[in-house]
């Protein structure tokens, strides 16, 4: 029997693990894919306090992982099929069918990058279509690429790609960007970036590899083609809550509703990080959520178990 099972090994899950294990709780973190989460895709994190020179997402998460492991947290690479609330205890059902019994659960499964769902996207994934500029940017050295989206991630990655690519088009369906001002200023002053506002992607084209993208002007309906070798997609995220739909209260967008103690509608089940309803989704806020969730899970165990 575990005291806490944490679902997801990103900043929220790893911090929850650190706090829980440090507090003497028997703690397991289940991570389906890679420990570190979405921030692994970031070349540089320059707003995590304590690193005035910035730090790569990979190095930051490496440190998170080491620190959690130092306090004896257990980890595995298992997906989660579902969870069962049995009152005082809960079961976590792994994708291999194993049931693990625990006193509390912290759901920190994060969110996944949205797809465009346009023709060519799936066919050319890994052949010019990418969701990680940091990973794949180097394959496009000296070549023209496009970035789709108008938020912080889209601009950060476009600016990173501008160091490598010959040209970076930023395709955005609106006339205005959602990204924070400092990023907008940096982007507008970079002469490698060209903004393609009021356009949506209709099709990603190529033979063996991507060689262009067909875009539509949303105001006039006019179609045009941009010759690019790569297309990087940053069009928002969707919370990974599918396996919880029937159990935990979610908002209309699928995010978990919690109170200030990170408690869900089910006693003993907590949520932390990008997966919950929150006004800001950053490594810092995810980590803070994780700390609160672990600390409140510990109090819950002391009171109820």
């Amino acid at each position: 029997m575990y005291d806490v099972i944490i679902i997801g090994g990103g900043p929220a899950g790893l911090t929850a693990g650190l706090y829980a294990a440090r507090g003497g709780l028997k703690t397991l973190i289940c991570e389906e894919k890679v420990f570190g989460g979405q921030i692994l895709m970031s070349y540089e994190v320059d707003n995590y306090p304590g690193f005035p020179k910035g730090i790569s997402g990979m190095d930051l998460m490496d440190n998170f992982m080491k620190q959690a492991e130092k306090f004896g947290v257990e980890t595995n690479y298992e997906g989660i099929k579902g969870i069962e609330d049995k009152g005082k205890t809960k079961d976590v059902i792994l994708s291999n069918g194993t049931k693990l019994n625990t006193k509390t659960i912290i759901v920190a499964a994060g969110a996944s990058a949205n797809k465009l769902n346009c023709p060519g996207e799936k066919k050319f994934t890994g052949k010019g279509v990418s969701y990680c500029a940091t990973c794949d940017g180097a394959f496009f050295r000296g070549k023209p690429v496009a970035v789709v989206g108008g938020g912080d991630s889209a601009l950060e990655e476009a600016l990173y790609l501008a160091n490598l690519a010959s040209k970076v088009y930023i395709i955005h369906r609106r006339e205005q960007l959602r990204a924070v001002k400092v990023l907008q200023e940096r982007a507008f002053s970079n002469n490698k970036l060209e903004f393609v506002f009021n356009h949506v992607v209709k099709e990603i084209q190529g033979d063996k590899f991507v060689n262009g993208v067909l875009v539509e002007n949303v105001k006039t309906g006019e179609l045009s083609r941009l010759d690019v070798d790569g297309i990087f997609i940053y069009v928002g995220i969707t919370p990974n809550t599918k396996f919880l739909e029937d159990i935990i209260e979610l908002n209309e967008d699928g995010y978990i509703i919690v109170n200030e103690n990170m408690e869900t509608n089910i006693p003993g089940i907590f949520a932390a990080g990008d997966i919950r309803v929150t006004p800001l989704r950053q490594v810092l806020t995810a980590a803070a959520d994780g700390a609160i969730a672990a600390s409140c899970a510990q109090k819950y165990i002391e009171r109820n178990c």
Partner: peptide, 17 residues
């Protein structure tokens, strides 16, 4: 893989297993 690729580094333990 490549050294600057975060997901690559973190996927390494699975490949080792």
């Amino acid at each position: 893989w490549a050294p600057w690729c975060g997901p690559c580094r973190m996927v390494a333990p699975v490949v080792s297993e």
